[in-house]
Write a protein that binds this DNA or RNA. Structure first.
Length: 940
RNA sequence: AGGCACGUAGCUCAGGGGGAGAGCGCUUGCUUGACACGCAAGAGGUCGGCGGUUCGAGACCGCCCGUGCCUACCA
């Protein structure tokens, strides 16, 4: 063995996470430790993963979300639960379709050119090649999912669940198909649900446009609009019935500028008198509010001014009776896109002198959450879920606590949304997704199912926008649907075979809503479903509380009559160090994979856990992660210190620690019990940050800083019983700390645990420590607090009075407390080693030596005589500062005690405690003043 | 417009009515028998403001100021 230390170029003292993490994940996976067996007799615990999109790659949100789930699952598994973390991915209809469409675009083709079947084949092919990326990335994070069960929203069992739920909802009258104004994305060319529209304030303009009276071209009404291009679809002008300005206008007729259509002036309470001019142009085909006004006043069929791609349609060239009209000037707009049409119309209005005013105006604009295109309210036939009957029981289960949302404040958001919920548009005009299980008989719906060759033309002629056009047929709004689990062979009404399936697919969130039970095999009555449903916890971000959580609760209750999960833990959003949301366009993303590579998954996970305080967003910075990498290193080095001692003496049994009489041993074992209880409770209440910081504090600042330093002395003494006990306790406490740390830092804990004496094949399946109340030891705790206070006081004197760090001191304690004296005699070795003390005297008879620095520790005078080394001025200054500090404290406590109300009303133990504090402070103050006087006189 | 959260050390944040805390940063001193990714000591705070409840408020209540987020059909 070399005596000199090697130069440290090899970083032997530094922990390298990379090889460790790769090795252990492989071992765990191959050994099947992630697997949950439904035949197990242990109590079940189940979390279903919020399925990431197959188009996605791991971002910080996923990293946080999955780290928290893994912490919970690993912890419960160690507690002996039959813990299942059910993994899978989401087909992400629009997002995935966009990806493949972009690929096609690079080849200069569109999906229409290759056709539906070929397109879907391309998507499946893409999925096979690229859809597993995020799953591989989750493994780098350490996710202990039961991969053998991995599900996909479009695989056959999940598709079957989708069909089953659709058919049941239809049979129960909770589904309908109707023509409604929906949110339409002209780029994706599909309808979107309300929550898929992102509202964003932006700088726009408010244009005031004069609509002249038909019989008095000099007058007219001035309307205000942010979207002049929609005027092509106007069918009326509305004013408030009690608006004196317009009393005489109601019932008259105005002319739509440029187009010339005659518009009635109507009165409706929905008009806000104080907005704009108080006159509202009514465009039922392109505005939800106007649609309702149109219905109330029987204004006839809405006029559709746009096509599904967002260009101007020829459909607006009609008069008030919807008869075609011709206008060369207005005809120019046809085919222009929305922005271009706006420019042209404004120009024409200006030329006609009808543009009265133009002012800047800030307003919210809805955009597609997938592609940011401005959403168009658009009239098309769609499938809807009648949500109210589903929402009511879903509200009730949260009210009754059958589903608990943590933190509770989110329940309010949940209730607000659920109580104001509107029907859910579930059909999407895309190809990638679950095809709607509805068929139409071409004979019974002769005028509603239209061959494509004549489809669009026919639709235009009917004045209706087609629901959707693929290469073969178009289904108009009045068509009668046959909804079935399997494609029907014949029409139940007429018996003929010419049936076509609805071309639409379902909203991706429809299948996501079934996820907690579709993944467990529903509608089959599987063992897994029986054992694991309802699942235990759902862990997710608040951004999909409505998209997903609420819908799972509704669908779980509807389909199984039971809630999908008992708890929902809502965690924060991850932001950058400046508090900005991470986004590619801002360029502030921190890539979790880069972080894992650089600092290790353990350090990263610990960081996320430590920052995951409830109700607040996480600001993540690399410095923070680096700090927790140091913690891994600390842990590693604690093991390295211990390693050579493990081989000495008798082999250490794993499990229970030895009974030791040593106060330091008793103290750390007692503290360990407190930490076990604290960490367990923190995890039970989803306070991940508290679990993390309790462990950090304990491992670093108690185990390493104090206990390990104290044990060093005993270990180096040789192989006596003291060394033996120290070895056992050091090992035991480290092993237990590893168990507690394992859910947060799975890799390094496994690595070290394997090197310690242990039972079992993996820390993953080792039992979670139970708190042993019997090991709580207040006597040892009080003793060690005295030791640490004394050592700290000596170190402080050394530093403040400028005593060289290397000097060995004499320390004299005058204590009139026999118990205190006994403790210090019993722990003298620790005090001397940690305080760097050569001569240590303690007793009631000890006196103050000449020329000494002095302080007070727990009522005990502490002197450090060092003739010639004391800096008198520094010591006097220090003592004065200390007296001031005590005075401040004393003033506070006495203020309290002198208040008769406090003595009368505060609990007795509080009064007693404060009285004790005041007495102690008074004594300390007296002693300090005494020291001060002596020093000042001796300096002289 | 309404709702919700958040203002605590230079920075990022814990704090659950009874002596203001952590990490990082900063200052000073240390090649201390694992760790300089370390050890030790320290400086630094009218807990956003005002009022209220209470014997006692950083915490509970109200108002105000500031910041962020969500919801909404005022064109």
């Amino acid at each position: 063995m070399a005596t000199a230390r090697e130069p440290q170029s090899s970083h032997e003292g530094q922990y390298d996470p990379r090889p460790v993490e790769q090795r252990w994940y492989r071992v765990w996976e191959e050994a099947g430790y992630f697997h949950a067996d439904e035949e197990s007799a242990s109590p079940p615990y189940c979390i279903v993963i919020p399925p990431p999109n197959i188009t996605g790659s791991l971002h910080m949100g996923h990293a946080l979300n999955n780290t928290l789930q893994d912490i919970l699952v690993r912890w419960r598994r160690m507690q002996g639960y039959n813990a299942l973390w059910m993994p899978g991915t989401d087909h992400a209809g629009i997002a995935t379709q966009n990806v493949v469409e972009r690929q096609l675009a690079e080849e200069g083709r569109t999906r229409y050119q290759i056709g539906r079947e070929a397109f879907l084949e391309r998507v499946w092919q893409w999925k096979a090649e690229s859809g597993g990326t995020i799953i591989r990335q989750l493994k780098h994070l350490g996710a202990s999912c039961d991969w053998a069960r991995e599900a996909f929203t479009m695989d056959p069992p999940r598709s079957r669940a989708v069909t089953e739920v659709f058919v049941r909802l239809f049979e129960d009258g909770l589904l309908y198909r109707a023509e409604r104004l929906v949110n339409w994305c002209p780029r994706c060319q599909t309808a979107l649900a309300d929550i898929e529209v992102v509202h964003e304030e932006q700088e726009g303009r408010l244009w005031h446009i004069r609509y002249p009276f038909a019989d008095d071209q000099g007058g007219g009404l001035v309307v205000a609009t942010t979207r002049p291009e929609t005027m092509l679809g106007d069918v009326a002008v509305a004013v408030h019935p009690e608006d004196p300005r317009y009393r005489d206008a109601v019932g008259r007729t105005v002319l739509l500028p440029v187009v010339g259509r005659r518009l009635p002036v109507i009165a409706d309470r929905a008009v806000a008198r104080d907005f704009g001019t108080g006159a509202l142009k009514v465009t039922p085909g392109h505005d939800q509010n106007d649609y309702e006004i149109g219905t109330r006043h029987s204004l006839g069929d809405p006029i559709k001014a746009f096509t599904e791609t967002g260009t101007i349609s020829a459909g607006f060239l009609v008069d008030d009776a919807r008869r075609p009209i011709e206008s060369a000037r207005a005809r120019r707009y046809v085919g222009a896109d929305r922005a271009e049409a706006r420019r042209m119309i404004l120009e024409d209005l200006r030329a006609d002198g009808l543009l009265v005013k133009e002012e800047p105006y800030r307003h919210a604009v809805g955009r597609c959450y997938r592609c940011q295109t401005v959403i168009e309210p658009f009239l098309t036939p769609q499938w809807f879920v009648r949500v109210k009957p589903l929402a009511e029981p879903a509200i009730r289960v949260v009210e009754e606590g059958r589903v608990r949302i943590v933190p509770e404040q989110w329940e309010r958001n949940y209730f607000d949304w659920m109580r104001n919920i509107r029907d859910w548009c579930i059909s999407r005009q895309i190809w990638w997704g679950h095809r709607i299980p509805a068929w139409y008989c071409m004979h019974c719906n002769a005028d509603q199912v239209v061959q494509t060759a004549t489809g669009p033309a026919f639709a235009a002629e009917k004045g209706a926008m087609p629901a959707y056009t693929d290469e073969r047929y178009t289904i108009l709004p009045e068509a009668k649907a046959i909804v079935a689990r399997e494609a029907p062979a014949r029409c139940p009404t007429c018996g003929r075979h010419e049936l076509v399936q609805d071309p639409d697919v379902l909203d991706t969130w429809f299948s996501s809503a079934l996820w907690p039970f579709s993944t467990l095999g529903w509608p089959e009555r599987t063992k897994a479903l029986q054992v694991f449903y309802p699942t235990s916890v759902l862990v997710t971000g608040f951004d999909i509380l409505f998209f997903w959580v609420a819908r799972m609760i509704m669908m779980g209750l509807k389909s199984l009559g039971e809630v999908p999960f008992r708890q929902v833990y809502i965690h924060a959003l991850v932001r950058d160090a400046e508090g900005q949301k991470m986004s590619k366009s801002r360029g502030n993303v921190i890539d979790p994979l880069v972080v894992i590579d650089k600092y290790g998954a353990d350090a990263f996970r610990f960081t996320l856990a430590a920052l995951a305080a409830q109700g607040r967003d996480i600001r993540l910075s690399e410095e923070r992660i680096e700090g927790y990498r140091y913690f891994c290193n600390k842990l590693w080095n604690a093991y390295r210190f211990l390693a050579p001692h493990l081989a000495r003496g008798a082999p250490l049994p794993p499990g229970a620690p030895p009974a030791s009489a040593d106060l330091a041993d008793r103290w750390i074992l007692s503290r360990l019990q407190e930490v076990v209880a604290a960490v367990t409770e923190a995890l039970e209440t989803f306070r991940f940050n508290e679990a993390a910081s309790a462990l950090y504090q304990f491992v670093w600042h108690e185990y390493c800083d104090w206990y390990l330093e104290m044990a060093k002395r005993r270990l180096t003494e040789g192989d006596g019983p003291g060394a033996e006990a120290a070895r056992a306790v050091l090992t035991h406490v480290l092993a237990e700390a590893l168990l507690l740390l394992h859910p947060i830092m799975p890799f390094i804990t496994e690595e070290i645990w394997q090197r310690l004496p242990h039972e079992g094949a993996t820390i993953m399946r080792a039992p979670w420590p139970g708190p042993e109340a019997a090991r709580r030891d207040s006597e040892a705790t009080a003793a060690l607090e005295l030791v640490m206070d004394l050592v700290r006081a000596v170190r402080n004197l050394r530093s403040e009075v400028n005593i060289p760090a290397a000097a060995w001191l004499t320390v004299i304690c005058r204590s009139r407390d026999a118990g205190q004296e006994a403790v210090l005699r019993a722990t003298e070795g620790y005090v001397r080693a940690l305080g760097r003390i050569r001569e240590f005297r303690v007793g009631a008879a000890e006196g103050k030596p000449p020329a000494a620095a002095a302080t007070v520790v727990r009522g005990m005078d502490v002197y450090v005589p060092l003739t010639g080394l004391i800096d008198f001025a520094a010591e006097i200054a220090r003592l004065r500062k200390e007296v001031e500090k005590v005075d401040r404290e004393l003033a506070r406590v006495r203020g309290k005690l002198e208040n008769p109300a406090f003595r009368a009303k505060a609990p007795a133990e509080v009064v007693e405690k404060e009285t004790g504090v005041a007495r102690e402070l008074g004594e300390v103050r007296g002693k300090l003043l005494e020291h001060l006087a002596l020093l000042e006189s001796s300096r002289g």
